[in-house]
Simulated assay, not measured.
Amino acid sequence: MSSKKPIGGTLAIEVEMRAEAASSIKALGQRIERQLTELQQLGQQVQAMAPSPARDKKLAEYDEKRRDAEYRKWTLIVQREAMGLFNHEDVEEIYCVPPKLN
């Protein structure tokens, strides 16, 4: 009796699971990129506005979108760690969430 596992058994399932996880991480990264672009544009709009109730409303929208972007980035890091990737310097560099505005 051979102790080798057949190709196409557990290994194939593991490969498929890792491919699915990588696909999920890629999709999340793309969503974060789009969200950060929108956030940057919104931040520019806020900074161009004079103090007013309309600016306050736009600033509140910016803050909410910024918190959501931070959360999505955190979920990306969690998913990466679940795959065994623990160095997140590239995530911090690529998905840089803009600062809070006043």
Score class of each variant (00 low, 15 high):
54 A>D: 13
93 E>S: 11
27 A>V: 01
78 V>P: 04
8 G>M: 06
56 D>R: 14
26 K>G: 02
7 I>G: 01
39 L>T: 09
33 E>M: 10
2 S>W: 06
22 A>D: 01
85 L>D: 12
97 V>Y: 05
13 I>F: 04
61 E>A: 11
77 I>K: 14
8 G>D: 02
65 K>T: 00
57 K>G: 09
57 K>T: 06
80 R>V: 00
22 A>G: 11
96 C>F: 07
36 L>E: 01
43 G>F: 03
19 A>S: 10
96 C>L: 13
80 R>M: 15
87 N>W: 06
67 R>Y: 04
1 M>V: 13
98 P>R: 01
22 A>S: 11
35 Q>C: 09
75 T>C: 08
9 G>K: 05
99 P>A: 11
87 N>R: 08
93 E>M: 05
13 I>Q: 14
66 R>M: 07
36 L>G: 04
26 K>P: 01
78 V>C: 08
12 A>R: 11
26 K>R: 15
28 L>H: 03
24 S>V: 00
56 D>Y: 07
31 R>W: 12
59 L>E: 04
4 K>G: 02
52 S>V: 09
89 E>F: 06
23 S>G: 14
78 V>E: 15
61 E>S: 01
71 Y>W: 12
99 P>R: 08
85 L>V: 15
86 F>R: 15
55 R>H: 11
37 T>E: 12
79 Q>C: 02
97 V>C: 07
87 N>P: 04
20 E>H: 12
53 P>C: 08
8 G>E: 05
81 E>C: 06
69 A>T: 01
97 V>A: 06
2 S>D: 15
27 A>H: 13
85 L>P: 03
30 Q>S: 15
48 A>L: 07
59 L>T: 08
61 E>I: 00
5 K>D: 09
44 Q>V: 02
46 V>T: 06
25 I>M: 03
16 E>W: 09
77 I>N: 02
40 Q>T: 15
20 E>F: 12
38 E>T: 01
91 V>A: 09
35 Q>A: 15
9 G>Q: 07
11 L>I: 07
6 P>M: 05
21 A>H: 07
23 S>W: 04
36 L>A: 03
14 E>K: 12
80 R>F: 00
72 R>T: 02
77 I>Q: 11
23 S>I: 00
17 M>D: 14
75 T>Q: 14
43 G>N: 04
30 Q>V: 11
4 K>A: 09
13 I>R: 13
35 Q>S: 15
23 S>R: 12
92 E>A: 10
45 Q>E: 15
97 V>I: 14
25 I>F: 00
26 K>Y: 14
26 K>L: 13
56 D>F: 09
38 E>D: 09
32 I>F: 03
87 N>H: 10
92 E>L: 10
33 E>D: 15
3 S>N: 03
42 L>Y: 01
99 P>Y: 04
95 Y>K: 08
34 R>N: 13
87 N>I: 02
32 I>G: 03
61 E>Q: 09
65 K>M: 06
89 E>R: 10
58 K>C: 03
81 E>W: 05
46 V>K: 04
87 N>M: 02
51 P>E: 14
32 I>K: 00
97 V>H: 07
63 D>E: 14
55 R>G: 12
78 V>D: 15
74 W>T: 12
9 G>R: 00
77 I>A: 08
13 I>A: 10
14 E>D: 07
24 S>M: 05
3 S>H: 12
26 K>E: 13
81 E>A: 12
17 M>Q: 14
42 L>H: 01
6 P>R: 05
65 K>Q: 13
63 D>R: 14
72 R>K: 14
46 V>E: 06
